[in-house]
Computed example of a mutant assay.
Amino acid sequence: MTDFTPDAVLDATGLNCPEPVMMLHQYIRDLAPGGLLKVIATDPSTRRDIPKFCGFLDHELVEQQEEAGTYLYWIRKKLD
């Protein structure tokens, strides 16, 4: 298990596309620059959508894991 201590946690368990990414957009907006957000999701499309979101908006996808159908992401908000 990754030993990152997030500044905020977004639990998108049970939500389907596009809801997890829409919520992610709001959570990342409210996070301080450089802050770490942990996202918990069960929608397999997040494996595609969250890395694209991070790449498009220049946030760092620090880590991603899958545990028994649950997808975990640690995203560091860009400094700007």
Rank of each mutant, 00 (worst) to 15 (best):
K78L: 03
T13C: 03
F53M: 10
P51K: 05
F4V: 07
L36P: 02
V39R: 05
Q26R: 11
L79C: 07
H25K: 09
D80C: 09
L37K: 06
D49I: 05
T70G: 00
L57P: 02
P18H: 13
L10W: 01
K77D: 06
F56H: 14
A68W: 06
K78W: 06
W74D: 00
E60L: 08
D7L: 03
M23T: 01
L31T: 05
N16H: 13
A8K: 10
M23R: 12
D49T: 13
Q65T: 10
G14F: 13
I28N: 00
D30N: 10
T70D: 05
C17K: 09
P6I: 10
L15C: 12
L72Y: 14
Q26K: 11
G14D: 07
F4S: 04
Y73H: 05
G34L: 12
T13F: 07
Y71I: 00
E66L: 00
T13L: 03
D43A: 14
K52P: 00
T5P: 04
L57C: 05
P33G: 03
H59R: 11
M23E: 10
G35Y: 09
G34Q: 10
L61E: 07
L36I: 15
P33W: 09
D11C: 07
P18L: 14
L36N: 07
N16F: 12
L37R: 06
Y27D: 02
L37G: 03
R29W: 07
A68I: 07
E63P: 00
L79M: 14
Q26F: 08
R29C: 01
G55T: 13
